[in-house]
Amino acid sequence: MKHLFLLSALLLAACSAQTPRVTADKGAVYGVLTAQANSAFREKYRQSDTSSVYGTEKETGIVYQDDMLNYPALDELYVGLVGQALSSQQYTVHVTAEGMSPRSQALAVGDVLRVYNDTGREQSFFITQTPDNGDGIQSFPALAAGSSANYPVLLAGTLELLSENDVNLKTSLLSRKNMAVKRLKNGETYQFENLNPGQYELIFWYWRLGKIAQKIEVKAGESVRVDKSLSVDSIMGAH
């Protein structure tokens, strides 16, 4: 039964992916992005009772236990399309004493983070590459409580937005040159339209699972469909 709930949700999402309209000299890429637990765990879950240590099956779907990672409710999945020059984009990060929101952000080198400091105290924010990605760092002037500032992101790779004053404040960043970004809920469709023919790279990312990159070729007058499922299995396979 649980299997049917999951399968139907994924099928519904997959069927709802509408083919983008293309002109004779432009192309497009689209698809559905999902994220799920690893396959062994999904199988274990299917074999468990309708109410278990993992969750309870309801008419509206599965209600996961509080300590479970609720994959169907994930809303910070990202698709990046690398290969087209874009104007700078701005993304918002709200910081409270409890943490940063969103927990993750994909963006292009040169994009701007608009950071709101609602922690009730001054914070000195900085952006750094993760330890296994490099030691690059960007630091910013102290930001007073209740104020906001724009931080252009100049580093590339897997990054973190952090505070000098509170190590628990963190947003994971994925930055690439010339990357257009879509943020998706689990099972949503993405589309990149009006693309010049040529080679591109798609990057699918969820901060806790990592990323999968895939090269694609866009042809004039055609749409390319690329569906992707992020899980421990699929990402290990892509490494």
């Binding site: 690893n38 990605n133 699972l209 990592g210 421990v232 490494h239």
Partner: peptide, 15 residues
Amino acid sequence: NIYSLSEISHFDLGL
């Protein structure tokens, strides 16, 4: 399940 995607050691130990 235990897994890591760290560059220096990525592994999935299964269930």
